[in-house]
């Protein structure tokens, strides 16, 4: 049955946007990395857990009309790259908004949604998607 541990081990980041901050240079990374790609050796042991605020703005987006079969029911859906307030970018869907109302720069926040399911009898996957923030 499916890839249970593969999904399960990422739950902290999928549920709560757990990333890391390099204490050497201050850069934030998501998902967590063991070594800062900028500081290399200097960052060893200095990558500190950091939970992202979940707030950000749309950097780019698209309306996906031709999707993987597991997303059939959501089609068409909005996929976006979101620039988080902490500076990192994240890819996920934008929900609770009409495609024509999405624009680059739109403020969004993370919410938990179902990401997918392993068939009719397998494990369900949950994680972040983004919705517009009242402005």
């Amino acid at each position: 049955m499916g890839s249970i541990p593969r999904f399960w081990r990422e739950n902290p980041s999928r549920y709560n946007l757990v990333g890391v901050k390099c204490d050497n240079c201050g850069r934030v990374f998501f998902p967590p990395r063991d070594i800062c790609p900028v500081c290399h050796r200097e960052s060893i042991g200095k990558m500190k857990r950091l939970e992202l605020s979940g707030k950000g703005s749309v950097y780019s987006y698209t309306l996906v009309q031709d999707a993987h079969p597991q997303f059939e029911m959501l089609k068409p859906y909005i996929l976006a790259m979101v620039e988080m307030d902490e500076g990192v970018k994240i890819t996920s869907q934008i929900i609770d908004v009409k495609p024509e109302d999405v624009h680059i720069g739109m403020k969004v926040e993370a919410v938990m949604r179902k990401l997918g399911a392993e068939g009719n009898s397998g494990i369900l996957h949950y994680g972040y998607k983004f919705r517009p923030v009242k402005e």
Partner: peptide, 12 residues
């Protein structure tokens, strides 16, 4: 929505 269920509602 198809990506909402009792789990996501409870979490929110």
């Amino acid at each position: 929505m198809p990506d909402e269920d009792t789990i996501t509602i409870s979490v929110q």
